[in-house]
Computed example of a mutant assay.
Amino acid sequence: MTISVNGEKKVFEKAQMSVRELLDALEYKVGFAVALNTTFVLNTTYETTMIKDGDALDILAPVQGG
């Protein structure tokens, strides 16, 4: 499958995978938020939220400022 991760095309051998599987494959550990097709995904549903071909995933890190 081909998906967009933070605006960059990525190709994976699987036809679909969970958000958790993708985050593990990309080696993301903690401290971020995830949006799938512009809808935020609760971290409690990473295991059950499935990503499929053509989806767009945004992984957002917190930003400090004042």
Rank of each mutant, 00 (worst) to 15 (best):
N43P: 08
T44Q: 10
R20Y: 01
E13A: 13
T45H: 14
G54T: 13
K10G: 02
G31C: 11
D55T: 13
K52R: 12
K29Q: 11
A25V: 05
K9E: 12
S4M: 09
F40D: 00
S18V: 07
E47H: 11
E8A: 12
T45V: 13
E27F: 04
A61R: 08
P62N: 10
K29N: 06
D53W: 05
L57P: 04
S18K: 06
V5H: 06
G31K: 11
A33D: 02
Y28A: 05
N43R: 15
E47W: 02
D58M: 14
F12T: 13
A61G: 07
E13I: 03
T2W: 01
L60T: 08
A33V: 03
L26Q: 09
T38C: 06
A56G: 12
Y28D: 07
G31W: 10
A61M: 09
T44M: 01
V30T: 13
T39V: 05
V19A: 04
Y46D: 07
K14H: 05
D55V: 11
M1G: 15
P62A: 10
L22M: 14
Q16G: 02
V63H: 01
I59R: 07
T45A: 15
T49L: 10
G66C: 07
F40K: 04
L23S: 04
G54H: 14
N43H: 13
G7H: 04
A61Q: 08
F12E: 12
T45F: 11
V30C: 08
T45N: 15
A15P: 06
A25G: 01
E13S: 08
E13K: 12
V30R: 14
T48I: 07
V19S: 02
A25R: 09
K52I: 09
P62S: 01
L22K: 02
D53T: 15
V41P: 08
L42I: 01
T48S: 14
A35L: 09
